[in-house]
Design a protein around this nucleic acid. Structure first.
Length: 1134
RNA sequence: GCGGAUGUGGCGUAAUGGCAGCCGCGCCAGACUUAGGAUCUGGUGCCGAAAGGCGUGGGGGUUCGAGUCCCUUCAUCCGCACCA
């Protein structure tokens, strides 16, 4: 029956008997009774009863929605099978982290959009994969466990159940039989397996793809590492070289080989600078640190060295970058990724340092490696030692000095924190004599040797006896070792440039910088090193040492946060040294400054003040001369980074456009052997270890401190049960406490770290394709069929980490032959964030009194968040507010116009701000279909917007009107079988066309609007014809599946509407034969005239010119020009 | 500072270079014999009594015609932030 039809009201109804039937009715009566007489109450009850009896009422909605939800579940209508006879379509949501707070109305926004796409694609004939799962490992569950003593597994499962309950109510068409949970051993077994594939792979730069580590070993065995040098230039073989031959490889023991391989593996263990957060007791990834504090909790973060797993994602930088051209992500999303990868093309340039002769002095060499703090102490001590040598040392020193070894030997040389007895720097060899005055234990010697190895030195050791009794043997041994070791190149001429790395050999006489602007080489007025640059100690002259030390101290004292906060501050210090420009030969001073970062490029720059803003500020601040090489492009006040200037003061390059000078100068630098082309990336390798309990354990076993992959048959390595989740705080995670699990009787050990949540999320979309496979992460047939995700919907906050790691993992699996695609997501849509609309009350300081927002100027107040359910618009329900908290029960209110008006602010939706809107409440009130359509109606999907329930009535009314099209005035279902009219067909087909194109364009708000227009039109046409309404139900079904399914069933279809076919729209119904032309005069519309669409322009022109309206405006003058666009507009220019 | 996005009624928003404001909220008026957080009908950009004029953040340009294209400027939001 119609909701507004009063005739059905039963006259003999006993109203009293109804009291208490519904709490809501009571509530209505209580709120109203002071203003209402008995008739009002009577009317209210009437309305309530009519509402209950109407077909599409609140109760009826929940009956319909519940009925279909259980029917869908029972009949497994969402279960998807691999069916190669059908084209596939893969619609994916970013799976949620199941937080304890449950869903708020912002979460479903993207899910609703993807659900519409999935349902639409299905009725368009696709085999649609639309799965859902949970990103269930992670820090919050662990922190909750620490605070509340509930095991993460327990709380996570509870949260998942709650999420599933909430998601279930919205009517999504997820195939829950494919659900994955990253914390499930049957899932993370394969996360671990993929990790091992990555561990057992290396990146072949020649082929630009990952390969099995076995291919690398085969290569080493035949030619050493000549073709594939260490990816990280800092690494050295035990003998201190950056290369080795096949013969050498064969002499290495197992451990050494593994150490060398570790430097190639795509998942590798290394001492890396990590972001250590003391408060969380864990390490954070770069993207988890924001402005020097943790993204969660805002705790301070410091740099710390730890032995960590990393993924060598930098090897994929180029492919991650170029892959962006193949995929349909928004430009801003691509830009964020490009920015993160941070590719810059430029070149390395080597400057000689004035006054430093090739081959540094022992002091300089020692200082280079010594910890600054110990340097002076060690130096003094080494002098001491030289005077008090043991007898054996003296004998050996005399011989080494006099024998013609061909290499310079130094004695009592400081290396790091040790003083080596004898050192050959050319060969990186240390010769030690165990003397009686050293009194060191064997352990001490071992530690020493290990340290020296790390520094790239080979060590040979002799006893006192050997030296005194068999000196010749000792000398020949030394000679033999020296011959075997490769010489480290020392450059002393331009034709033989030094290896251009920070950590490499050859430092001391040259300084290498990275620049993207080689064209400005003549404009270099100074050089700047990062304070941490290893050359700093070496080049600083005596007269500047004090100042430099003071500056270094200052830099050390500054925390990361301070440096971030004062980015624009200019600080620095002159070292006293000068560099010689390799092209202009000009001498420029070398400074140090914190604005140069040690971690990027070479940690050193050439300062070009006329072309770089930072250099310019630096030059101005320290009153350094500025060479202008760009003429009028440089104002003297501001640097100009243009490429368009013509070079001046640039020697042979004068008159050249800078743009052209870039390649020309690089060529010149390369010719002179002082530069080479170089590409740098900002992106760093991804730290992959977390000192946490609630994550995937690393499937490796350490033997002699070397990690070995576990065998596939032993996976999963399950997370051991524990009730101690507190990090030890010293860098080891909670797993370190479980010694039974960590330690083996054999002395072998497990890794105490776990993987980050990114691990499980990096490949879950592949597991959905074949979620129950026990033998593989997913079967090849499924992977080939379902292939790439056709559309991926989720928040833009995952732009960097998740999307880059997923893309990397897919590329690796592709390279290793498991996938036939190397980008996971064809198209990405970022739904906008739905923010909360908070309300505030203003408490008068020192009193239990609240002031309305308009009057706060007159008091000293503190704003307090108030629960939005207690506020209607901006007006506070003061009674409800008093009831909500006992301490406010006696609160006084200072009202304006008899009302308490709240303040408001748009903020993130969160429990603590009392502004969370739970979709459950909306569904209880209006039903899931209304929620779905209203969320889509709010605005464009990708736009962020504050949540407001204002306007939801419009959508609710629309559904009711839609429902009423199928029902007569008595509420009885019934559709007519008459032939449709032209107007009705037109209304239908216009809508079918628009909905289809809107969904393809992800423009769901305009779809909802179009449905409303259509229903408005059909209502005024009083259309109840099956031939019109049936197709319309199908078109609406992706948006409002429950009501659509009910009507579909009422229309007599036994099968679910999910298996219907989207009706084809027919262009012929949209055709019209005349058009109301707007007649504009001088661009302003003055009238409309109806002409047949096929009327020739000439006829239109005649009719228009003859019309009254033109006579009125032209005042008899002939028109200058008449523009007629057929089917559009007529414009007359006077 | 760099990069990206967005600026349209009281509000959310809509407009293949062709009648700016579709659709909805809100508001106003009316109908349903009283009542009304229901329903239905009509109205609703601004100024103006009207004729008409003015209107898409501001300024310029291209065009017969610009919310839409170009230049410039301002504001807001997001991302990155001393990356040489």
């Amino acid at each position: 029956m119609r909701l507004h039809d009063k005739s059905v009201f039963p006259n003999d109804l006993n109203l009293n008997g109804l009291t208490g039937l519904s709490g809501e009715l009571d509530e209505l009566l209580r709120r109203k009774d002071e203003h209402m007489g008995p008739m009002t109450i009577f009317a209210l009850r009437t309305r309530y009863i009519i509402g209950r009896m109407a077909e599409y009422s609140k109760d009826e909605i929940s009956r319909i929605e519940d009925k279909w939800r259980s029917a869908w579940a029972k009949n497994k209508v969402y279960q998807t099978e691999l069916d190669i006879s059908k084209p596939k379509y893969y619609v994916l949501d970013m799976f949620p982290y199941p937080s304890g707070a449950g869903l708020h109305v912002g979460h479903p926004l993207g899910y609703i959009a993807s659900d519409i796409v999935a349902r639409f694609k299905r009725i368009k004939g696709f085999n649609v994969l639309h799965p859902m799962g949970f990103d269930a490992f992670g820090l919050p569950a662990e922190q909750y466990a620490i605070e509340h003593g509930i095991h993460p597994a327990t709380s996570t499962q509870q949260n998942i159940q709650n999420f599933k309950r909430q998601l279930g109510k919205i009517g999504f068409c997820y195939d829950w039989s494919r659900e994955v949970q990253t914390c499930d051993p049957s899932y993370y077994r394969w996360t671990q397996w993929i990790f091992l594939q990555i561990f057992e792979s290396w990146y072949n730069r020649k082929e630009a793809k990952a390969e099995r580590i076995s291919s690398l070993i085969a290569c080493f065995e035949t030619e050493g590492n000549i073709s594939h040098p260490f990816p990280n230039l800092k690494f050295r073989t035990p003998s201190g070289s950056d290369s080795f031959t096949a013969t050498q490889w064969k002499t290495y023991d197992e451990k050494t080989r593994r150490e060398i391989l570790m430097n190639y593996r795509l998942a590798y263990l290394a001492h890396t600078d990590v972001n250590w957060c003391e408060a969380l007791g864990t390490v954070l990834a770069n993207d988890e640190v924001i402005n020097g504090v943790s993204y969660r909790g805002g705790f301070p973060v410091v740099k710390r060295q730890m032995r960590q797993w990393s993924l060598r994602i930098t090897e994929y930088a180029e492919r991650l970058l170029s892959g962006l051209d193949q995929i349909d992500f928004s430009e801003s999303m691509k830009d964020i990724q490009r920015n993160w990868i941070g590719k810059s093309t430029g070149c390395l340039v080597t400057f000689k340092i004035k006054g430093l002769t090739p081959g540094p002095s022992p002091e300089e060499r020692g200082r280079e490696t010594a910890n600054k703090k110990y340097w002076s102490i060690l130096k003094a001590y080494s002098k001491d030692l030289r005077k008090n040598q043991t007898k054996a040392e003296s004998i050996l020193w005399e011989e080494l000095r006099n024998s013609k070894l061909g290499h310079k030997i130094r004695r009592q040389h400081v290396i790091g924190i040790f003083i080596a007895d004898f050192t050959c720097l050319d060969k990186r060899l240390v010769i030690e004599v165990d003397g009686d005055i050293h009194l060191q234990t064997e352990e001490y010697d071992n530690a020493r040797t290990e340290f020296l190895h790390d520094e790239g030195f080979a060590v040979i050791r002799f006893t006192n006896d050997e030296v005194s009794s068999d000196l010749n043997n000792v000398l020949s041994k030394v000679k033999k070792t020296l011959d075997e070791l490769p010489s480290i190149k020392r450059s002393s001429s331009l034709s033989e440039p030094a290896p251009m790395t920070i950590g490499g050999e050859g430092r001391g006489e040259v300084l290498t910088v990275f620049t993207t602007r080689p064209d400005t080489i003549y404009g270099v007025d100074f050089m700047v090193l990062a304070p941490e640059h290893p050359l700093v100690a070496e080049i600083t002259t005596e007269s500047y040492r004090k100042e430099i030390d003071a500056y270094l101290k200052y830099v050390e004292s500054r925390s990361e946060i301070e440096r971030m906060a004062e980015v624009k501050r200019v600080t620095g210090c002159f070292t006293g040294a000068f560099a010689i420009n390799p092209i202009s030969k000009k001498e420029t001073p070398i400074w140090i400054s914190e604005y140069v970062l040690a971690g990027y490029g070479t940690g050193a720059i050439m300062g070009v003040p006329c072309g770089d803003e930072r250099d310019h500020k630096f030059a101005k601040h320290f009153k350094l001369p500025i060479t202008n090489i760009i003429g009028t492009f440089y104002s003297g006040e501001e640097a100009n980074p243009s490429y368009e200037a013509t070079l001046e003061n640039s020697g042979a390059f004068n008159g050249m456009l800078m743009r052209d000078a870039v390649p020309a100068i690089i060529a010149e630098l390369e010719k002179l052997g002082v530069g080479k082309r170089q590409i740098n990336y900002k992106m760093r390798d991804a730290g992959w270890s977390r000192q946490r309990y609630w994550g995937e354990p690393f499937p490796v076993i350490f033997r002699d401190d070397v990690p070995y992959a576990m065998e596939e048959k032993d996976l999963p390595l399950t997370l051991p049960d524990s009730d101690n989740f507190k990090p030890s705080g010293n860098g080891e995670g909670p797993l370190a406490n479980l010694t039974d699990w960590i330690d083996f009787a054999s002395g072998e050990k497990r890794d105490s770290n776990t993987m980050p949540t990114h691990a499980g999320a990096a490949w879950y979309f592949l597991r959905y394709m074949d979620p129950h496979n026990q033998k593989e992460f997913a079967g090849r047939k499924s992977l080939d069929y379902w292939n790439q995700v056709d559309v991926y919907i989720g928040g833009s906050e995952h732009a960097v980490a998740h999307l880059l790691y997923s893309r990397m993992w897919v590329k690796i699996l592709h390279d290793l032959g498991y996938l036939n695609f190397d980008e996971p997501f064809k198209k990405l849509i970022n739904q906008g964030k739905i923010t909360g609309d908070s309300r505030f009350v203003y408490r008068v300081r020192g009193a239990n009194k609240f002031v309305s927002a308009g009057l706060i100027d007159q008091y000293e107040t503190d704003p307090l968040h108030v629960d939005i359910s207690l506020v209607e618009g901006l007006e506070l329900d003061t009674d409800g507010f008093q009831r909500s908290r006992p301490d406010y029960a006696s609160a006084k209110f200072i009202l304006e116009n008899g009302k308490y008006i709240c303040g408001s602010a748009i903020e993130k939706m969160s429990k603590s701000k009392y502004n969370v809107v739970n979709p459950d409440d909306i569904i209880d009130k209006y039903g899931a279909d209304t929620l779905r359509m209203y969320e889509m109606f709010l605005g464009p999907l990708e736009q962020s917007k504050p949540w407001s329930t204002n306007g939801i009535d419009g959508v609710y009314k629309f559904l009711r009107r839609f429902w009423n099209l199928f029902h007569d005035s008595t509420g009885k279902f019934g559709v007519g079988n008459d032939a449709p009219t032209k107007e009705e067909l037109r209304a239908l087909h216009k809508t079918l066309k628009k909905i289809e194109s809107d969904i393809e364009n992800y423009s769901f708000n305009t779809s909802v609007s179009e449905f409303m227009i259509c229903v408005n039109e059909l209502s005024s046409l009083k259309c109840n014809k099956r031939s019109i309404l049936e197709p319309l139900v199908i078109a609406l079904s992706p948006f409002a599946p429950h009501i659509a399914e009910e009507l579909w069933s009422l229309l007599g279809h036994p099968n679910t509407i999910l298996n219907a076919t989207y009706p084809a729209f027919d262009e012929q119904y949209l055709k019209v034969n005349s058009h109301a032309y707007p007649i504009s005069i001088n661009g302003k519309v003055r009238a409309t005239m109806e002409f047949a669409l096929d009327m020739p322009k000439e006829d239109i022109e005649k009719l228009v010119l003859a019309s009254e309206i033109l006579k009125k405006w032209s005042e008899g003058k002939p028109p200058k020009k008449v523009i007629i666009v057929q089917g559009k507009i007529v414009n007359v220019v006077l």
